[in-house]
Design a binder for these strands. Sequence first.
DNA 1: AGATTGAGAGTGAACGTTCGTTCTCATAAA
DNA 2: TTTATGAGAACGAACGTTCACTCTCAATCT
Lengths: 207, 207
Amino acid sequence: MARANVQRQSDRRDEILAAAQRCFVRSGFHKTSMHEICVEAGMSPGNLYRYFPSKEAIIAGIAERDRAEVAQEFAQADLSHGLFPLLEGMAHHHFTERSIEQVKLCTEVMSEARRDPEIARISAAFDADVRKWLVDLFRAAAERGDIAKDADIEGAVDMLIIIADGVWWRRALDPHFKADALIPVFMDITRHMLRSRAAGAGQERTS
Amino acid sequence: MARANVQRQSDRRDEILAAAQRCFVRSGFHKTSMHEICVEAGMSPGNLYRYFPSKEAIIAGIAERDRAEVAQEFAQADLSHGLFPLLEGMAHHHFTERSIEQVKLCTEVMSEARRDPEIARISAAFDADVRKWLVDLFRAAAERGDIAKDADIEGAVDMLIIIADGVWWRRALDPHFKADALIPVFMDITRHMLRSRAAGAGQERTS
DNA sequence: AGATTGAGAGTGAACGTTCGTTCTCATAAA
DNA sequence: TTTATGAGAACGAACGTTCACTCTCAATCT
């Protein structure tokens, strides 16, 4: 076979990443050996190294893939039914539908970001994107009249992201944790955060 | 004849743990080698192994120490000035006063809990303690009349713990993150969560 | 007092293992 | 034949851990 098959090359990379992801979810980045990934991918180390130059490159590939996957959710958002139905749908998706595998992988990425500068970069860029996306969303919702125009959008977004992180860590650490039970509380405080700051008696019971 | 000095033995263990903690904060559990800890503690590996049987034992020791230190804060709580001043003080303590070193160490413990069953046990026990402590605190505050008796205490506590975790992760990952700017938002939603569930128009502006 | 003793404290080279990576060689398509 | 694809043994470094040994010093003996 003379010509380099770039499609097949790309497929092979995806297969390796998928295999590595399964290993990483099971044992974490550091306890997973290259040999383990090779077995999972049904491939020899020599061959695997033709597709990735190092273990770190695989980890970075996984991080990027994972972040892109999570980010994709935001792209599909539809504000036409109002902000709060959208947020509730996203909360449901984030709290329960996302597989526990992806949640665990996300925690791996977060802790690796504390060590590997490249992962930190990917992670920080992702965070900035999500934050900007949410702020823009809330601004648009304010224009629509879904929320007060003088609401503390930045503060609310920061808090929502923090809650999202916290929920995923709980999901990852406590197998009995039922995140969906928290959705009413979550929606309640979200509505409250986005109320008008001006009036003492803001709009209560916005549902 | 040199008798076994149990006090000195304990001191030595503490010194090793302190040295290990510095290393772990700097490089994380897995990237820290025993040699590194030995250098930091000014001690040979042979001698260090007289005080701890393995690296895992040191990690477990660190986790226990760290959790105990965090738990100590709760023991000093004083409800006599009302629930919300107490909570605000705790938030301030948790969000800003706790050193970034301890925050980073905490994230190490959390991610290690996903791998090491012993750390998971320590971490889960700690979480359960904190949760029970907070629920009891809120029940006592309800008795005092600080909050409504029909408030969703369990839900509020779960959410507060989640927020606390999320804030610490943000602190650990983003050096520019200013957690104290979030305290007003935090207190606001805390008050909101602990309002009465019965009435449509709960007490607003409880400050 | 001075010498002897014995056990705790401490050393650091070395060990066996594991890991990420590379090298050599085979196979099969073009 | 040529070249992409693949296998798998082997390498060298790094790691956690061990082991044989030395040092220190209070207790004991003469």
